[in-house]
Structure formats: structure tokens, C-alpha cells
Design a protein around this nucleic acid. Structure first.
Lengths: 199, 199
DNA sequence: AGCGTTCCGATACACATGCATCGGAACGAG
DNA sequence: CTCGTTCCGATGCATGTGTATCGGAACGCT
């Protein structure tokens, strides 16, 4: 057999380059030539990995979505008080914010893809899947909190999960626009999560 | 004096064409040629109205922002119960949602511009100004509601206004992605506003 | 070592876009 | 009507983009 290449890892490598470019210069900054340069490969290599640009973008979108979800799960795992549901809620939502330091890049990538998903049904489907996962995650947390008596019984887990997600996204937008600081966004999240606690 | 043209109204006319194109095909759909065609004029006319494309886009951004704000104020004015602060709050936020019928186009335009504003400081400044106005509007409503005893005293008007705006934006995103219906978004807004009422 | 397959880098190409240019039309003042 | 200024439509141009193509390099197998 001839020369073999780990396609999947190369695809991830290129996807990372795409994300960095999108985070810095937006979707229109992710041209094939720029992507190749950023990834340190040639255009031909990129073309071999992805049949067309669309495919590359979808892969990059899934790439960043996966990272955001994993960041949320990781923060839950290393939560200081694993038993405290509100702490876990907060950590999850803060991870979704992704407005800290270099994570801020991911937030801009999220923004760019979400805006595009508004127009492209294929991208929209990917985002819907992403949000379905996050909703599930939060819903489970909320339900668990109710069962352990930490969260008020009248809270409707799924409905509340959707509201929290919307809040987090809206705050992300504000931070990206420079109207809120990451800290004030976190504070807003905290206010909302503590309000769910039983008094 | 030679041929004279109402520049300002022509600029608005073109801005409207820009918004329709952006709402349908995104920012990249707003090429000078397409804009001219949509507006029913020639490229030369567009070039005479705006020195460069950037200027045209900023003008269009302000155009749609103005319409959103005016829609909010209008909804407040024609509110069924002008005295009810929560009704006014709801109307304002629903106007911000702009996910009804043809308003949905404006929501997509908002999304596109906001995503771009993440990368372009000039656009970001425009959006910050827009949000400052909305925040002021909501803050006043909340304060008024407190003074008339309709809204709980422990609510911090400005903080709450920011949270409501973030919620509305996040819900808009979800509707645009096709994950929420306009009705469910309105319901989420209603839940949040009624929660502010004194019990 | 030799070979066949896979990969890659460069180039070619068609096309779109923003902007500049320019000749003439439109229109008000005299 | 005549003139002079403003406007506009068409065209040209430089540039950047996605994709197709192709010759050769890299590499595993025999």
C-alpha cells in the first residue's frame, strides 16, 4: 500500500486552523489559501481532505461545538463541590459562555457559525444538534437538583434549561460586543442559577 | 442649480434593499451589484450615495436598529393596558425579538450585523449605542414599575434590564435556528416578566 | 530495488467583487 | 433656448476566490 496519511487528525488540524482564522477575521477570512497557510500545509492538501469548502466549514463547526461541549463536561467533572447542583449548573453555563482568555476565540467562532446557520439549513441542523445536547445536559442537572431537594420543585427543568441557554448566548453576544465584561456575564449567570435554589 | 436628488431618502431606500438582501442571503449577499438591482437603481447611483461599501453597511445597520427601536416604542404606545408595566415590558421585549412574520427578516439582519460587529470595532460601536438605548428604555420601565408598586422592590432595574436583553437576544437566536417557535419565545419572555411582579 | 498507488504542491482557469473612469442625460438658472 | 452643474449607467480593471488539473514526490509492498 502506498503513502498513508491519518486523514482524521489532519482534518482536525485544519479545522483548528479554520477556527483560528474565523475567530480572528470572521467567516470571510477563512479562504482556502489562508487556511492552508495557517495550518502550515498547501492548498492541495486541504482540497484532498475536504471535497469542497462547505464540507470543511461544517467539519470546523462540529469541531468547535465539540470543544465547547467537552469544556462544559470537564468543568462539571472538576467542579469544587461535585455534589452542588448549582455549582455544576454554573460551571456548565460559564463553559458555554467561553468568553475567558483564549476561549473568547471560540465564542467568536460560535457567533460566526450561528449567524451563518441562520441562512444555511445544513449548518442550522448542526447547531440544533449541538443545542439539543446542551439542553439535555442542563435538563438532567436541573432534574437531579430537584430530586436532591436543592432546586425548587416548581421549576420546569426543560423549560428552565432553554431559558438558561438563551441567557448564556445573549450574554456571550454582549461580551463579544464589548458591552459586558466576562465577570459581569458570570455574575448574571450566578444570579439566575441561585434564584433556582430552594429558599 | 442642476439636477437635485433627495439623497437622504435615496440612502434609506438603498439601506432597505441592503437589509432585504442581508436578511435573505446574509452579509455576503449584499454585493454592490445585487444591492443596486434590489433597489431598482444602477451601481453608479449606489456609489454616488455611499463613498464605499463600508459606509453603506453602517448606514444599513443604523437603519435596521432604528426600526427595531421604533417598533418597541410603538408597541409600548399601543399597548392594550398602558398602565400595566409588565405588559409594556413584554411588548418591548417582543418587539426586540422581531421574529414575527416579515419582522423575521430584521432578526436575521440583526444577527448578521452583530456577528460582524464582533470583528469590526466601528460596527461594534454602533451596536453598543443601540443596546444602550434599549437598556435605558427597559430600565425606565422597570423603575416606573417599582415606583407604582407593581414590580418587586428587590429587583435591580439596570441589572435586570441587561438580563432581559440577553434573554431576548438568546431567544432570537434559537428562533432563527428553528429550535424555538416565535410563540415559545414569547412564552419564555412572559414567564420572565411575570416573575418580576410583586406577589 | 522496483513498482504501483496515494498524496501534494503548483498552476490554470473561470468568475465575482469593489472601485475608478467617463461620456452623456437630466435639470435648474440665465 | 443655452449653458453649466449634478447625476447616472455602463464599462474597465485589478484583485481575490473556489475548483480542476497534472506532474512528480513519498511510501508500502513484493
Amino acid at each position: 500500500m502506498p503513502k498513508q496519511v491519518d486523514h482524521d487528525s489532519r482534518r482536525r488540524h485544519i479545522a483548528q486552523a479554520v477556527c483560528e482564522l474565523i475567530g480572528r477575521r470572521g467567516l470571510e477570512g477563512a479562504t482556502l489559501r489562508e487556511v492552508a497557510a495557517q495550518a502550515g500545509v498547501s492548498m492541495g492538501a486541504v482540497q484532498r481532505c475536504f471535497r469542497a469548502k462547505d464540507e470543511m466549514l461544517v467539519f470546523a463547526q462540529e469541531h468547535v461545538n465539540r470543544r465547547i461541549t467537552e469544556r462544559a463536561r470537564a468543568r462539571i467533572a472538576e467542579s469544587p463541590q461535585p455534589g452542588s447542583v448549582t455549582t455544576m449548573l454554573e460551571q456548565t453555563l460559564v463553559a458555554m459562555l467561553a468568553v475567558d482568555g483564549e476561549d473568547l476565540l471560540d465564542a467568536r467562532v460560535w457567533m460566526a457559525f450561528t449567524a451563518q446557520a441562520t441562512l444555511d439549513p445544513a449548518l442550522a441542523e448542526v447547531q440544533r444538534g449541538h443545542y439539543a445536547g446542551l439542553t439535555e445536559l442542563l435538563t438532567v442537572l436541573l432534574r437531579t437538583g430537584q430530586e436532591s431537594g436543592q432546586i425548587r420543585a416548581e421549576v420546569e427543568p426543560e423549560t428552565e434549561a432553554e431559558a438558561l441557554i438563551a441567557l448564556a448566548d445573549g450574554l456571550t453576544v454582549q461580551v463579544l460586543l464589548g458591552r459586558h465584561s466576562p465577570e459581569s456575564a458570570r455574575a448574571a449567570i450566578r444570579r439566575r442559577t441561585t434564584a433556582l435554589l430552594r429558599t
